[in-house]
C-alpha cells in the first residue's frame, strides 16, 4: 500500500509493549489479543478505532519486550500506519517483518489527535489534510524496502526458499 488516509490517534513518548498488549493476553491468538490492544494506556481503544486510522507516537514507540503481537495487534485492530518520532528497535524490526510500514518522523509531535493524514509511504510524505502541512519520514535502507515490498519477512522467505528449490 503506498497511499494511506486516516484519522490520528495520538500517543506520547515511550509507549511500552506492556501497555500495547499486557502480558496476561499473550496466551491467546491474535484476534483475541487485538480486542485488548492499547488497553493499558487507553482502555476501550479497540472499539474506538476505525479501519484505516493512524497511530501517532512520540519517542521510542514500542519500547519493552520483543512480543511481535504488539504491532500485529495494532494492525489487526484496523490501524493502517504508525508514525512516531522514533521507534524502539525490536518493535521497528517487528513492524517491517510483518509488513507494517513504520514511519519514523522527527516532527511527528506537531501532529494532533483527530486530524486526518494523507501518507505516501513510498515517498515518506505525511500531510495533515486539515492544515496542508507536510512532514517527512526518514528514508528506509534499500534492503529493508525489499522486505516491505515482498509484504514482510515471511513472504520474502517464501520467495527466496521457493526460488532455491
Amino acid at each position: 500500500m503506498t497511499i494511506i488516509e486516516g484519522k490520528v490517534w495520538k500517543f506520547g513518548d515511550n509507549v511500552d509493549t506492556d501497555v500495547i498488549v499486557p502480558g496476561k493476553y499473550l496466551i491467546g491468538d491474535i484476534d483475541e489479543i487485538a480486542e485488548h490492544v492499547m488497553e493499558g494506556i487507553r482502555p476501550g481503544f479497540a472499539e474506538l478505532v476505525n479501519k484505516g486510522d493512524v497511530l501517532v507516537g512520540g519517542k521510542n514507540f514500542g519500547t519493552g519486550s520483543s512480543r511481535e503481537v504488539a504491532p500485529r495487534a495494532i494492525q489487526a485492530a484496523g490501524v493502517s500506519a504508525i508514525v512516531a518520532e522514533s521507534f524502539a528497535r525490536i518493535f521497528f524490526r517487528n513492524c517491517i517483518n510483518v509488513g507494517f510500514v513504520p514511519l519514523e518522523c522527527p516532527t511527528a509531535g506537531e501532529i494532533e489527535e483527530g486530524q486526518h493524514l494523507h501518507i505516501d509511504t513510498v515517498a515518506g510524505e505525511i500531510t495533515v489534510i486539515e492544515t496542508g502541512i507536510s512532514h517527512h519520514a526518514l528514508k528506509l535502507p534499500t534492503e529493508i524496502g525489499e522486505i516491505l515490498e515482498a509484504g514482510g519477512l515471511e513472504p520474502l522467505l517464501k520467495l527466496r526458499i521457493g526460488g532455491r528449490t
Binding site: S66, R67, E68, I90, V98, L153, L157
Partner: peptide, 27 residues
C-alpha cells in the same frame, strides 16, 4: 528483548521477535 544479557561473555547478543526468529530457524 533480554537476550542482550549474554553480551556479558563478550559476544554480540541481539534480541528479536518471532518472525525474525522464523527466518533464523529456517535459514
Amino acid at each position: 528483548s533480554h537476550s542482550l544479557t549474554a553480551g556479558v561473555l563478550g559476544c554480540l547478543a541481539i534480541g528479536v521477535g518471532s518472525t525474525d526468529m522464523l527466518g533464523i530457524v529456517a535459514t
